[in-house]
Computed example of a mutant assay.
Amino acid sequence: MSGKAQSADDIIAELAKSPVDDSMKVDKKICSGGKSYPVHLSFDDGPSPTITPRVLDILKKANIKATFFISTESLVKGKPKDINARKELIERMKREGHTIGSHSYAHIEHANSTTTSQQSMMENLKKSFVEMDKLNLPKPLPFRFPYGSGWNVESVPANQKMANFAMNAIKGAGYYPFHWDIDTKDWSKIKRKALPVSALEQICSSKGGVMLMHDVHKWTADNLPVLIESVRQSGHTFVSEPEIRDYSENRASKPLVSLADHLGGPQGCVYVGHLDRAGSKCNTGNNRNTGNTEGVQ
C-alpha cells in the first residue's frame, strides 16, 4: 500500500459502501517506537458444539492459552446432546490449560434498571454461580458482564447503583471482574471488516491487554489464524490469563483498564474500556440503544 496508511475507521467506512468478501488478510502494524506488548485472547458466549472445537484446535496448534467465558444457561437449556457436548468442551478447555470464567446465566444487562430489576438480576447471577460451581473450578474465577453492563460507568444513578450491587455480588461469590481492552467486533458484519488493523491499533493504544472475541461465530473460527499471525507479525506476544494479570499488576506502565473495577468509559465509546476515549462525544445511554452495539458482546 502506497501513501498514508488507512485507519480502522477509514477501512470500515470504505467497506460499508461496497460490501466485499469479509475474510481477513494478514497485516501488521508496528507500534510507536517499535514497542511490542502482551495480548490475551478471550472468548464469550460459548461453548458452541460446532465452533468452539475449531477454536480450540487453532489455539492448540498456535500454543495459545485463552480464557473462555461460559454462558451458563447453555449448560442446562437445549438439546441433551448439545448440553453434553458443551460440558465435554469445558473439560477439554481444562485439559488444554485454558482459563474458564462466567459470562453470567442469561445474556442480560445487569445494570439496566429499565429492563432488569435488582431481584431478577441477582437471580440471574445466582443461577450462574450454581452452574459454575458444578464445574469444580478453583476460585477465584474471572467474570465478564454481558455487554460490559455491570462493569461500565453508568450515567444514570439507578443503573450505577445496580452496577455496584452486581459487582459486589460477583466478588462475594468468589469472582473478579474481567473486561476487555481490545474489541475485535467479530460479531459485526461491517466492523469486523476492519480487522486485523482495528485490533492492532487497539493493541498499540492500550499497550497490550485483553482481546475480546466470540466462539459462537463461524467467521471467528475461519479468521482466527489470520488474526493470530497478524498480531505476531506486529511483534506482540500471546500470553495466558495469569500472565496478563501479572503484566498489568507488575510490568505495565499503568494497570490495564480491563482488569480494574468500574473504570470503563461511558457506554457507546468507539473502543469501550479505553479511558482516553471516554468523553462528551460518547453516548452514555442504554447499551442496546447505542450506536456501536449491533450484536452480542
Rank of each mutant, 00 (worst) to 15 (best):
M132L: 11
P146S: 06
N136Q: 13
E123W: 06
Q118H: 11
T116S: 13
E154G: 03
A106T: 14
E131R: 11
P138F: 04
S117N: 03
G148A: 04
L141M: 13
D133F: 02
E123R: 14
E154Q: 15
Y147D: 00
P138A: 11
S149Q: 05
K139S: 08
L137F: 06
M132N: 10
P138C: 04
W151Y: 13
F143C: 04
P138S: 11
K139L: 04
E131S: 06
N152R: 09
S117M: 06
N112E: 15
D133H: 03
E123F: 05
I108G: 01
Y147F: 12
E154L: 05
K134M: 07
S155E: 13
Q119P: 02
R144H: 09
S128C: 01
R144L: 10
N124A: 07
F145R: 05
P138W: 05
Q118R: 15
N124K: 07
Y105C: 04
Y105V: 04
T115K: 15
K161E: 15
Q119I: 13
S113Q: 11
Q160A: 09
E109P: 00
S128G: 12
M132T: 11
K127I: 01
N136S: 15
E131Q: 15
S120L: 12
A163H: 07
G150F: 06
T115D: 12
K127G: 09
L141I: 13
M132D: 08
P157T: 04
A158F: 02
R144V: 12
N152V: 06
M162V: 07
K161P: 02
N159F: 00
F143K: 00
F145S: 06
H110L: 15
Q119V: 14
L125G: 03
Y105M: 02
E123M: 12
E123K: 14
